[in-house]
Design a protein around this nucleic acid. Structure first.
Length: 423
DNA sequence: TCTGGGGTCCTAGGACCC
DNA sequence: TCTGGGGTCCTAGGACCC
């Protein structure tokens, strides 16, 4: 049996933990650059005029009218709160698969003496007690069913108190007949529409389709879901996170930029971020992609976008090599006279560091800068992000920097920003 | 004026190999 | 005049997830 533990309105809940004055009031968290609503607590969700993923400027009035509190995203805080939750889960089972920042699958098989439902409640209560975060727990024989059970745990929280088990055949059938096909994990809007067109409305209807139809129209991915819904597990439980196959970053600038120098500094900064991630997983990248584009939404602006992929002579994780390669690539696609909105980089062809193949002129170990980079990373870990950085990132005001007008303090990671309590 | 960011997996088709 | 059979690797595009 597998439990899916998922935090309720995770980002909004993280903010509220430290703001008791906001308990019971509507709260939303905004995307990078304060662009869209990406998380809303249940009080905000109840206000139907505030749809998720809506640009803030379009709903500014509604937000004001309902006195909704806005927060810019504070990933430092969310990441740290997430780790606390995951650490707690490891007390409940040796097998935990961290699926995303706010949810994890927990293997709860072999509970002979405790009811799974009771165990689910203990998980939920412990997390709440230790972190202040509310979660929902869904328990079932397969991952897809556990996801569904989790949905039910939240939908009918008033009766099941946020824990729901699909542990009998009757419950499984009832859950399948209740769930619209779009609610099934892995069935997105495209497939849902197609299924509705042939009269398949619920998860139950979907399981009644012939396997051949599913395979033909939805590939093996669909067949797996089809099996899992029928209680046959076929999506692997992964305890160890796999090394990433691509590491990229691309963020919209705080304002539109024309100047090559400024864009290039942003690009260099992103490279330092991704190459640090690369080094943390002890890998090197073979390809580097750089892209940039103007703002698709500005009808008045001339539009341009382009991207370029370079194959690195030797796979590397060295920030400085990558920055100079990226700069050269950017130069090749940059055209003056446009107002750019975003530059992005992506590393791929990722291989373990010890597999790097040298060539006639380059021997990886002889030119190894890993000690230097280790020191570089250690200093930045100790004294804060970008304490030490490449000169190509520049030292002038970062015009590309994200807008974060309402970011909460980093309560859990900065001494100066700890929560203050006055009596 | 202001519209997010970071990923995974699968398939078909082309190019190539022996 | 007749023109096989069994593969791999890569990429683009689609669908999905949080």
């Amino acid at each position: 049996m597998i439990a899916l533990v998922d935090c309720n309105s995770f980002y909004a809940s993280c903010e509220q933990v430290f703001r008791p004055d906001l308990w019971g009031r509507p709260v939303v968290v905004l995307s990078n650059n304060d662009g869209c609503v990406i998380a809303a607590n249940k009080e905000a969700k109840a206000l139907s005029e505030i749809p998720m993923f809506e640009p803030v400027f379009k709903i500014r009035k509604q937000l004001n009218d309902h006195k909704v509190t806005l927060f810019s995203s504070n990933y430092t805080l969310y990441g740290e709160m997430s780790q606390r939750v995951m650490n707690i889960l490891k007390f409940f089972s040796p097998q935990v698969e961290i699926y995303s920042i706010d949810e994890a699958f927990v293997d709860v098989s072999g509970m002979k003496y405790v009811s799974l439902n009771a165990y689910g409640h203990r998980i939920k209560e412990t997390i709440y007690q230790y972190t202040g975060l509310p979660v929902g727990v869904g328990i079932a024989p397969t991952k897809v069913l556990a996801k569904l059970a989790n949905k039910i745990s939240k939908k009918y929280a008033d009766v099941n108190r946020n824990v729901f088990c699909i542990d009998t055949e009757e419950k499984r059938i009832k859950a399948l007949k209740w769930a619209k096909v779009k609610m099934v994990w892995g069935i997105g809007s495209k497939h849902a529409k197609r299924l509705q067109n042939i009269g398949v409305y619920t998860a139950y209807d979907f399981t009644q389709l012939p396997e051949e139809w599913v395979r033909k129209n939805m590939t093996v991915v669909g067949v797996r879901i089809w099996n899992e819904l029928q209680g046959r597990s076929c999506i692997e439980f992964k305890t160890m996170p796999k090394p990433k196959k691509g590491i990229g970053t691309a963020k919209s600038f705080g304002k539109k930029l024309e100047d090559f120098g400024m864009i290039s500094e942003a690009c260099s900064y992103y490279i330092s971020e991704v190459s640090e991630v690369l080094r943390n997983q002890k890998s090197c990248a073979t390809y580097l992609q750089v892209f940039l584009h103007t703002n698709y939404f500005s009808a008045g602006d001339k539009q341009y976008s382009n991207s370029i992929t370079v194959t690195l002579g030797v796979p590397t994780c060295d920030t400085f090599t990558l920055i100079s390669e990226a700069k050269r690539a950017l130069k090749a696609i940059y055209k003056p006279g446009y107002r750019y909105k975003k530059v992005g980089v992506c590393l791929s062809g990722i291989i373990p560091r010890e597999y790097v193949q040298g060539n006639l002129f380059y021997h990886p170990s002889r030119f190894d800068k890993s000690q230097l980079l280790k020191t570089f990373d250690a200093l930045n870990r100790k004294y804060g992000k970008a304490t030490l950085f490449s000169g190509l990132v520049g030292t002038r005001v970062k015009e590309w920097e994200l807008i974060k007008e309402d970011r909460s303090p980093r309560y859990t990671t900065q001494w100066e920003e700890l929560l203050k309590v006055s009596c």
